[in-house]
Design a protein around this nucleic acid. Structure first.
Length: 572
DNA sequence: GCCGTTTTCGGCCCGACTGTTTTCAGTCG
């Protein structure tokens, strides 16, 4: 059994929950939660790092103890400390934590005072009216618990960034029309452009506004979780939670910084403030009682001796060290993109014709668009065999004669078969400008086999770019097991490249993988995998992911002109 | 449990809202 980073993260979070219920030192609990996040965010599997002889305690936030616990987990698949905690704390208490109204302290109180060990015990006690007499509880809490028990549902999964944009912009528009409102902006992980968001954090600048009353009165509000003067929380009918914070104009920068997060980033900034005798909160930077900064985010960073740090970098993944050394990246923007290297047409499973896709790309100002329809193995999409591909090549040649200002690249998304061979003969692949090679089947090979398979594919001189390299579908399917560092090193040796697929449910390579590629010196393509003209607009989500992965224009293939890009391809 | 050009011990970000309380604990972000 292989222990993945996600397993380590889940187990540390579970142990943190148990320790919290026991009333452990909160900083110790935080250390476990930090470690869960750190391991969960790593681009390499910890098992691979260990196999390579790396000392895990070199990771900032992982010390000797936690490093040892990770090793125990990887080697044995078990964690003694967790098993001991599970013996001390009844399992059902964890479910109580997920109930909503209850935190670790109240769960412990219920257990200590009423011997409540799970939801069934809690339901019985609440119905018997035993809860409201406990210190720290009351009739309202008892009612909330009964309600929560009746509607106990699994937590909403985090939503795709792309799927919340419309509602976010709608809320911005409507809150902006409230009396006395200045700025309205979406902060939180939405502003950091994380691939999924758990809720929406809206920041409003205003003085004496009715904006909160407007918010809670919106017809799509299903539940009001909090309604204060400066902070309100509602849940929409869609299940999406929305937090709104109101601050005065002079606090805008400090508040934006604070509500943008991430939490780990903010803790570091505030800690740097403490070192300088400053207090940093959402209202500003304070020396004693005097506000000395906070109108802009730049002011906040300047007070702790840092340049402005882009929201996408604010994850405490090295941005502070880079900022101090003057090594912050000049992040890529959508405007740097000159073309798209992965797109489909009606010839396979696209919804637009070759001509329509070409016109769509030209209208965007692109200089090139690669048509990369599926190969024969993808029979569901009526993938191309050599004969049909040859016809498409001719059609593209004819189209290019008519087109002005853009060149359509002859390409293919050729399947990587289970043995690592490509799904079409070299004789036809060599007629193309560009070949994207992707895995669509046999996703559940061992890491070793999957890695070998992809490296074998790259051994073929006609393999240019590995499409959606991990095959993950957000909220649906984890990526397949793969040693991406080995794949990247192999790509470098062979002159191949990897893709950042901009489809909102793919977005692989992910942010950490992008950063790993950059550090290895491997350039990436950012491609939409468009199946329609409208899909060409998805490029910006790929850009978001690339920015979170620290990529600069030079790190990306399709910031180049076609002649420049052609020279980078080994078959050119 | 982690960390250290102040430190190997003693710190560890900070505030709003709720429901409880009669000045504050718990929870959340």
């Amino acid at each position: 059994m292989t222990v993945h980073n996600a397993d380590v993260a889940r187990i540390f979070d579970r142990l943190a929950d148990l320790l919290e219920i026991e009333g452990a030192n909160p900083f110790r609990v935080r250390a476990y939660r930090d470690a869960a996040r750190i391991v969960g965010d790593l681009p390499n599997e910890v098992s691979a790092l260990m196999a390579a002889g790396k000392d895990l305690s070199e990771l900032h936030g992982i010390g000797k103890d936690l490093g040892g616990k990770i090793e125990e987990l990887v080697q044995t698949g078990r964690l003694t400390a967790l098993e001991e905690a599970e013996r001390r704390v009844p399992e059902g208490l964890l479910e109580l934590l997920s109930l909503g109204p209850l935190g670790p302290k109240r769960v412990k109180t219920l257990y200590d005072r009423l011997d409540i060990k799970g939801v069934d015990d809690l339901a019985a006690a609440a119905k018997a009216g035993k809860i409201h007499d406990l210190r720290g509880f009351g009739p309202k809490m008892e009612a909330r618990l009964l309600d929560a028990l009746a509607h106990h549902v699994k937590e909403e999964p985090r939503l795709l960034l792309a799927s919340v944009e419309a509602v976010a912009q709608d809320l911005v528009q409507r809150l902006g029309r409230a009396r006395g409102v200045g700025k309205v902006i979406v902060a939180g992980s939405y502003r950091r452009r994380k691939e999924t968001v758990g809720d929406l954090d809206l920041l409003v600048t205003a003085a004496g506004s009715d904006v909160m009353d407007r918010l809670v009165a919106f017809e799509e509000v299903a539940e009001i979780l909090g309604h204060g003067r400066t902070r309100s929380t509602v849940r929409l009918r869609s299940g999406l939670q929305v937090d709104v914070r109101v601050v005065p104009e002079e606090s805008y920068g400090a508040a934006l910084h604070y509500f943008t997060g991430s939490k780990a980033h903010n803790i570091r900034v505030r800690g740097m403030g403490v070192e300088r005798g400053l207090k940093i909160n959402e209202y500003g930077v304070f020396k004693g009682d005097a506000q000395i900064a906070g109108r802009t985010e730049e002011e906040v960073y300047a007070q702790v001796g840092l340049p402005y740090i882009e929201p996408e970098l604010r994850e405490n993944r090295g941005e502070f060290e880079a900022a101090q050394d003057g090594r912050l990246p000049r992040l890529i923007t959508l405007a740097d993109i000159r073309g798209d290297l992965h797109a489909h047409t009606t010839e396979t499973n696209g919804r637009a014709t070759l001509e329509e896709m070409a016109e769509g790309a030209r209208a965007k100002g692109y200089k090139y668009l690669a048509i990369t329809d599926h190969s024969q193995r993808v029979s569901m999409a009526r993938g191309l065999d050599a004969k049909r591909l040859a016809r498409q090549i001719k059609a593209i040649d004819r189209l290019n004669e008519r087109l002005d200002g853009i060149v359509i690249l002859k390409g293919i998304e050729v399947d990587i078969l289970e043995d690592g061979s490509l799904d079409l003969p070299d004789a036809i692949l060599k007629e193309l400008d560009l070949r994207v090679c992707s895995v669509h089947y046999s996703l559940n090979l061992s890491s070793e086999k999957q890695t070998e398979r992809i490296i074998r594919a790259m051994d073929n001189r006609y393999c240019d770019i590995i499409g959606h390299p991990t095959g993950r579908l957000l909220n649906k399917r984890a990526g397949f097991d793969l040693d991406l560092e080995r794949v990247m090193r192999a790509a470098l040796e062979r002159g191949c490249f990897l893709e950042v697929n901009a489809q909102p449910e793919r977005l692989d390579l992910n942010d950490a993988h992008c950063k790993m590629a950059k550090e290895l010196g491997l350039k990436l393509a950012i491609s939409t995998d468009a199946h329609s003209v409208a899909n060409l607009e998805l490029m910006r989500f790929g850009i978001d992911q690339a920015r979170r992965g620290w990529l600069e224009p030079a790190d990306v293939l399709n910031t180049r002109s076609w002649p420049q890009l052609k020279r980078l391809l080994r078959r050119a």
